[in-house]
Design a protein around this nucleic acid. Sequence first.
DNA 1: CAAGGATATGTCAGAAGCGACATACGCGCA
DNA 2: TGCGCGTATGTCGCTTCTGACATATCCTTG
Lengths: 111, 111
Amino acid sequence: MDPRKRARLDSAGWKVGSAADFLDLTPEETAFVEMKVALARYARGLRTQSGLTQTETAMRLGSSQSRVAKLEAADATVSLDLLVKALLTLGATPADVGRVIASHTATSAGS
Amino acid sequence: MDPRKRARLDSAGWKVGSAADFLDLTPEETAFVEMKVALARYARGLRTQSGLTQTETAMRLGSSQSRVAKLEAADATVSLDLLVKALLTLGATPADVGRVIASHTATSAGS
DNA sequence: CAAGGATATGTCAGAAGCGACATACGCGCA
DNA sequence: TGCGCGTATGTCGCTTCTGACATATCCTTG
């Protein structure tokens, strides 16, 4: 089920290459994952910049420390909804969110 | 529920104002909804511009006509994930998505 | 080394979202 | 007027996400 777990299990012999190559993701799936990663990074930045711990942040969000950890790790079980709601609660504006998505995400399919 | 929401409860008589005033939404909730509405509008634009029906679009997305209708109506049961995945599948880039969020959304928290 | 705070990882019951289906609404055309 | 096509709305069973908790892994600091 979980693609990441499968990936780990199958990785007896290593190959170089991006995760997108290794897993078989469509370009759209890749782009989607990259968006989440970019937002997750931004979320961590917002938090650390405020000197907050994950636990404190979790309380602000009405969530738990573990979920914040997963959120910042762009875990597969974390939805875009949660990610974006968290960012807004941490003080980001929609403009900020849009900017992060637009600028920190590789647009073209690339090689 | 949320302590910060309480403030607006007492509007006895009508006032003109946005849905966000009328419902009891925090600024973040309002911003989130506005993001979804902007993306939903954009989704409809992409579809109609391609001359597709909701049913045809649904097949491309591996979904159903009803869900596409709800998606374009920014229905509450439609997640950001679905919205964004749909946009990417319909040909939008992450940059497009970011731009829509950043520019078609009222930014300031303000009153 | 031990203790303590912060972060990561695994699991679960319950909530939320999903595709699918049925059906209602709107509108043009015969 | 009735039919056909596109869209909207409501519901349902199943899947996925969520908060919570337990626990593991780092780092510091004494």
